[in-house]
Write a protein that binds this DNA or RNA. Structure first.
Lengths: 254, 254
DNA sequence: CGATACATTGAGGTTTATCAATTTGTGTGG
DNA sequence: CCACACAAATTGATAAACCTCAATGTATCG
């Protein structure tokens, strides 16, 4: 079993966020959810949360575990309550594109049509709330504001996807890496964590597959940003953004 | 004035689709709309179409005209009834990423938040139905199935965006071009046009900015596909897919 | 503490971009 | 309707960015 400080920390967080609601399961775990304010569930009132309680199931995964694979029937949607997940697509020869990373509070399953259009795998230990799509469809009838919330989420994800398209189509390696560490920082803030230093839960290989680069280019580019004093690597998986303004200008292509 | 065969054809189509509904404007232009079955409007019943009639405004643009620019307040949404539009983002030094092309029946404005997150420009002469977002919000109250339709559209666009992310992050120039001509063909079919030969309304430069390549690479890659007998260029702006199966295998990375 | 996976660094190659010239096509005006 | 002007597309030569292959270093985990 993995006992590194990093992994241990994630395990603890996981136990925390899932243990609390589950302890009072007779008493609405969803109402007590620590990440509810971040999640789709924020659209629901107390009454509707009770309906959620009836259909939610909890899932825990270890780092590296697969949640589902591209092409499988999209039977379920999820809310991530702790940890990090990566979504990815594969080409037949093994080339991989990570289409997104999910963190606590993120919803998983919006882009799903009949089948999942990407695979999902735990990057760290994760805890999830799982809903069958049929249950959720029934709930949406009773709670139309849930549909509005999903539309708003979809719009937000579309905007993010277009930023990623700009990044992949036109930005240099340096610009991509700067954009990436800033994105990590902004998303940490959004879920109430410190913005600096930023934890990097995923490997260099995952970062490369997300940014359309190789592991080696990611590593070299981080080294160059380090040499230029824009960042400091506290460890492989933790970075301090020393010159945020400079990083933002690099990221935007100035 | 533009008198080439190509431009003339587009002008004629434009007059057709816009003239018919406008001629019976007392009698529900939206009900008579030729592209309604393709558009968001297909979600609406006769009664609701009359509400649409009250808030719709018609817009025509010439090739090259701008519809709106990134950063402007997103006051309106649109339905494209004929012609082709490109959406794009710019970096400060002028690098451009085309994030999508729109054809007849396509909806424009889903990803809009407070402000437009991309610029929109007519590639050919176009006709559009224009709705103010506030009017549409009111209509959505009366016709909740419109919201459901938009969510379904957003899901579809998200899936498309992820395919584009895979293309930009991991596919070679040859794979990108093959994917592109197949996409053009598939979208032509969806709106009831012939699947082969396929008309290419946009310039090599626009194609490059969409696929993350330069004009020159687009041109060279088309030449190579032509040499390998997978395609035949009927003209600069029209391509016959000779070996569709081969193109599909190239596009998917086999 | 040793084994293993991950990250970094280096040398060299490939793809695609850049710069430049030519060809082709399109639109305008005579 | 034809010729000229201008824009778009193609082709070629060279360069740069990034990838590939390989070796070394470093952190992690049993």
């Amino acid at each position: 079993m993995k006992n590194s400080p990093t992994e241990l920390r994630f395990t603890e967080v996981s136990q925390l966020t899932s243990a609390i609601p589950r302890a009072k399961s007779n008493n609405s775990p969803c109402a007590a959810c620590e990440v509810r304010h971040l999640a789709v569930c924020s659209a629901l009132q107390d009454e509707e949360l009770k309906l959620l309680d009836e259909i939610v199931r909890f899932v825990d995964l270890s780092a590296g575990d697969s949640l589902f694979d591209e092409g499988e029937p999209a039977a379920n949607v999820y809310n991530l309550t702790s940890g990090t997940i990566k979504l990815y697509k594969l080409l037949p020869d093994g080339r991989r594109q990570v289409t997104g990373f999910l963190f606590a509070g993120d919803f998983l399953g919006l882009a799903a049509s009949e089948d999942y259009i990407y695979s999902a795998e735990a990057v760290t230990p994760v805890s999830l709330c799982k809903f069958s799509r049929s249950d959720l469809d029934i709930l949406m009838e009773k709670a139309p504001q849930l549909e509005r919330r999903l539309l708003s989420l979809a719009r937000y994800e579309l905007a993010e996807a277009q930023d990623q398209i700009l990044l992949l189509g036109r930005k240099t390696a340096k610009e991509r890496i700067a954009s990436f560490v800033l994105m990590l920082s902004e998303r940490a803030v959004r879920r109430g964590e410190q913005d600096n230093p930023v934890s990097i839960p995923m490997s260099r290989n995952d970062i490369g597959d997300y940014l359309g680069l190789t592991t080696e280019t990611v590593s070299r580019t981080l080294t160059r940003l380090r040499s230029s004093r824009a960042i400091v690597m506290e460890s492989d998986r933790k970075v301090t953004l020393v010159e945020r303004q400079v990083l933002e200008e690099i990221a935007e292509g100035f």
